[in-house]
Write a protein that binds this DNA or RNA. Structure first.
Lengths: 172, 172
DNA sequence: TTTTATATGTTATATTATAACATAACATAA
DNA sequence: TTATGTTATGTTATAATATAACATATAAAA
């Protein structure tokens, strides 16, 4: 099970996340012979600003502020589509939001653990899970092509906070 | 693994699906002391008209035609919310669409197999899968509260059609 | 440097969903 | 039975998300 869960839910040097993501993006674009234009790079950078997924219009706002120009939705959606096609960005359907992919080269589960409290989302690649889904599909004679798995709950950090709050309440 | 997959993807007496769903709904509403009003019943019936999930505005259209009155979106969304709270209806996030739940009393996986070709969606309840997800969550110290699992691919029927089409092509 | 392909700008609009407030229907108690 | 509270629906407006269609600009290749 490969995940960025620890990183997402703990204080860390987030600059390294961003740099790593940009580096991966540059390599992949070179490899595929496509261009990581300034707009696309900025969008990717914004989606990596935190580990919380962003809506397209949040990206729009932030990019507009960043550049001082007003930017229309299609520009954002195009950049997201480009990044998404390369596997650098994922869409979280239940949130209508987008997030950078921490391991675009690995086999994917498209599994996300989304915190109901702080909104952070960790991605998980889980071979055994994929096998279970593949088996289930075969049993149902369903030819599996892609998948979207979104788990909701409390991240380690928020879970701890809740416990403490409850304890505090109990004592008060 | 409990699923309505066979039923969904094969010709069957669909009236029985609808009747069963309405009967379950009536029982559940009685049990919970809430009302299955005509609007709510109609919406449930429409969502059971086929095994393809429907968008809220599709439901609106059909209900308007059915009653001859024009019906505004909030009415539809309220009915869907009511049914959804009772577990009688699910939302498929990736499609922005809604579908009747075939086994509202069973433990849920919230797992759907959605056909990319015909649009049908079968629901699956899969204890072993739930265990895998629970374990993965625990490993990540994530307190799992709910989940949404959507698989995309080809249903048995469409998969067969594709194979035949390919064979046909190969022969032609 | 023309040509071609790719990327972005711009305007308008489609699609999905909800807020806010008014009215109606139902349930219960006085 | 009427008064009262609760639940459900009607109505209007608008928020939030996403895309179509066409014009322009930028980069790459011939």
């Amino acid at each position: 099970m490969l995940t960025n869960s620890r990183l997402v839910h703990q204080p860390h040097d987030h600059g390294r996340c961003i740099n790593a993501a940009l580096s991966r993006a540059n390599n992949l674009c070179t490899e595929k012979g496509v261009r990581l234009t300034p707009t696309r790079e900025s969008v990717l950078r914004l989606l990596w600003q935190s580990h919380q997924p962003l809506g397209a219009y949040q990206v729009q706002d932030q990019l507009s502020k960043l550049t001082g120009k007003s930017i229309a939705p299609p520009t954002i959606y195009r950049a997201i589509e480009f990044l998404s096609d390369l596997g650098l960005v994922h869409r979280l359907a239940s949130l209508n939001a987008y997030i950078g992919c921490p391991f675009p080269n690995s086999e994917h589960s498209n599994l996300f653990m989304i915190c109901n409290s702080c909104g952070s989302a960790a991605e998980v690649a889980h071979t055994a899970l994929n096998d279970v889904l593949q088996n289930a599909s075969e049993k149902a004679q369903f030819k599996l092509e892609s998948q979207s798995i979104e788990l909701f709950g409390l991240c380690p950090q928020c879970s701890q906070d809740t416990t403490q709050a409850t304890e505090h309440k109990a004592h008060g």
